[in-house]
């Protein structure tokens, strides 16, 4: 409990900043929707004139973005990216920070098993990503309602947030594993950031070149589609199952690797 409390306290500031950024993105994004719907321009026709590559990179695929649900579904890509960066960094840092700050000798000479230190840290991570998720949910429903005659699309947003949370969990586990396996925090965060970037590039490549679609399974960003969540109310069960299982494996590896680790002073 003491480790959990300490980690919550240590991360509260950064969590607030992340949440504020997220609220601002949703607020600003929905303002643009207002702009679209007011301008009376046929936005779909306008976007149809854009090269497909650009549309793909910005996550604007084939959805009708003049409808609020369609417009909001485009956000999912940005949510995934932000949440991925937040969760992987949290995981990578929380596991390895004592060694970075040279206080591993302090905490790991206490009468506890190493897993007894790691699991409250990961629990703090799960609570942090959950708060981030709930704030995203609240801000989404609030701002959607503003532009949709008071209907916040709670069901659709809830489903989207559930998908987002599964992804957050996956990235937290991924980051934690890097933190436990790699030599230090710097390497862990660098590797984690690189991998998130790689996943993103791969997801764009898959969208652009249909020949590459078999690579879809290698990027978590293709496991859920904003459009199917927001418009068809569908969350892929197999995607959720795979991500959760892989997350569990990563969490397991984190414990095993950390237990075997020679701690740096």
């Amino acid at each position: 409990m003491n480790v959990f409390k300490k980690e919550m306290k240590a991360n509260i500031k950064s969590l607030i900043i992340w949440c504020c950024a997220q609220v601002f993105i949703i607020f600003a994004g929905m303002m643009k929707y207002q702009g679209f719907s007011d301008s009376q321009v046929d936005v779909n026709a306008l976007f149809a004139a854009f090269p497909e590559e650009i549309m793909v990179v910005f996550g604007i695929g084939s959805v009708d973005i003049t409808k609020v649900a369609g417009f909001y579904s485009v956000f999912f890509l940005y949510f995934m990216l932000l949440a991925a960066v937040h969760a992987t960094m949290f995981g990578a840092v929380v596991v390895s920070k004592e060694e970075r700050d040279h206080c591993a000798d302090f905490i790991y000479t206490k009468p506890v098993h190493r897993f007894q230190v790691i699991w409250p840290k990961l629990l703090a991570g799960i609570i942090n990503i959950l708060i981030f998720n709930v704030v995203t949910f609240g801000a989404s429903v609030f701002f959607i309602a503003q532009h949709n005659n008071g209907d916040g699309l709670i069901d659709k947003v809830s489903l989207t947030m559930l998908a987002l949370f599964i992804l957050q969990l996956f990235f937290l586990a991924l980051g934690a594993m890097f933190g436990a396996v790699l030599k230090n925090t710097k390497r862990a965060t660098a590797a984690a950031a690189g991998l998130v970037m790689g996943f993103f590039i791969l997801s764009v490549a898959v969208d652009l070149y249909s020949k590459l679609s078999f690579l879809k399974i290698f990027t978590p960003f293709k496991y859920f589609e904003g459009a199917s969540l927001m418009i068809n109310d569908q969350l892929s069960f197999s995607s959720a199952a795979i991500l959760l299982i892989v997350s569990l494996v990563f969490f397991g590896l984190t414990f095993v690797a950390f237990n075997r680790r020679d701690l740096n002073t």
Partner: peptide, 9 residues
Amino acid sequence: YLPSEVFYY
């Protein structure tokens, strides 16, 4: 235990 180099949070 008192480590040779003391660092704390």
